[in-house]
Simulated scan of single mutants.
Amino acid sequence: MFFSIIIPLYNRPQEIKELLQTLTLQTYKQFEVLVIEDGSKDDAAEIVKSFAGKLDIKYFVKPNEGQGFTRNYGFERAKGDYFIIFDSDCLIPENYLQVVDASLKANPLDAYGGPDASHPSFTPIQKAISYSMTSPFTTGGIRGNKKGIGQFHPRSFNMGISRQVWEKAGGFIITRSGEDIEYSIRIHSLGFKIGLIPEAKVYHKRRTNFLQFYKQIHFFGRARINVYKFFPGELKAVHFFPAVFTLSLLFTLVANIFTWRIAVLCNFVLLLFILLIFFHSWIKNNSAKIAFLSLIASFIQLTAYGLGFMQDFWKRVILKLS
């Protein structure tokens, strides 16, 4: 099988250098790389050029349209039997393509997704963010999990589709704000077989500080309502969990001011949740420091998503504004 790896890029030259370096180490060699610069001011032309002798690589420059339509640009120019899309802030294990090729031979899929993990080189904050995005005690527990709730929806930081999917389903119709979830649902609706390849992990750096992380997750909460506008049936009870958590935190604060009896119960539940996250992260990361940062990251993840979700639920669902 010949793979086409498609990477949209926007003002992140250093990230693409690290990603491309990991691709030079792949044990499976039948692939090409398409890097599409999406109207960047800080471009990666020289960096990509430096890999010309190491990879079968092509570099394109286009006006800014967002990652969804930029991936479509890559699909249109790809030669592969299978298209794989990565975010530019990913590092790829050297056996990734070998794992995917073997898995697709053993269990053919029209589209797949893989999980993300923390790399040893990540900063403590990045490791904490990675924990919060994969933890069973946050909404991360339903991502990249074959035991997840409902249909499995590949996410665009680590996602593959066959050429047949591209020819029948077309590409992304949303360029931002939940574009990968909408695409996954549409692929499902056309009868294609989609699945998780648990071993096809990538190391996803995400954001480097908590403020950037908050902004990203707040956007994700809003994006869920955007997907709802296309597929109302895809808004599940689990998607309300961060909003419920956020409101519960507010209720706990109010209870501590006005009524100690209710506050005692609320504080006990909150303390239990804190201890679960802290010790689970400590065991997983073997670091008390990362465990403490994981508490911060998990609370940011849940409240940022919850606030973004509630903001657009009120605006677009209750008030029916565009």
Rank of each mutant, 00 (worst) to 15 (best):
L275N: 12
V254M: 07
L271C: 07
K49Q: 10
I181M: 14
L319E: 03
M159R: 03
F83R: 04
H153T: 12
T24K: 09
N286L: 13
N158W: 03
F83D: 08
K54Y: 06
I142R: 14
F122L: 03
T252R: 12
G150E: 10
E18F: 02
K315N: 13
T70Q: 02
I225Y: 00
F258T: 06
D87S: 13
Y183Q: 10
R186W: 04
Y183L: 12
R12V: 02
S121Q: 03
I283C: 08
G306Y: 09
I85F: 11
I185L: 14
G150M: 08
L265G: 10
R12M: 11
F230Y: 13
K205G: 13
I47A: 02
D87Q: 06
L321F: 05
T27D: 12
A44K: 09
F152A: 01
I36K: 02
E234S: 09
F172N: 05
K146S: 12
Y214M: 09
F230M: 08
K284H: 07
I283R: 15
K284W: 05
F157L: 07
I129S: 05
S298R: 06
L20E: 11
L276M: 10
E182T: 04
A200M: 09
W314K: 00
A169L: 02
I142A: 15
S4F: 12
H204L: 04
T70D: 04
P108W: 10
I173E: 06
S130P: 00
K193S: 12
S50Y: 07
P136D: 01
Y183H: 12
I85W: 06
L190P: 01
G233I: 13
P136W: 01
F278M: 08
S287I: 08
T27E: 15
T208L: 05
Y183R: 10
T123G: 02
Q212L: 12
I257V: 10
D81L: 01
Q164S: 13
S50P: 00
G150P: 09
Q151S: 10
N267C: 04
A102S: 14
G148E: 05
G39F: 07
N95W: 08
Y96S: 13
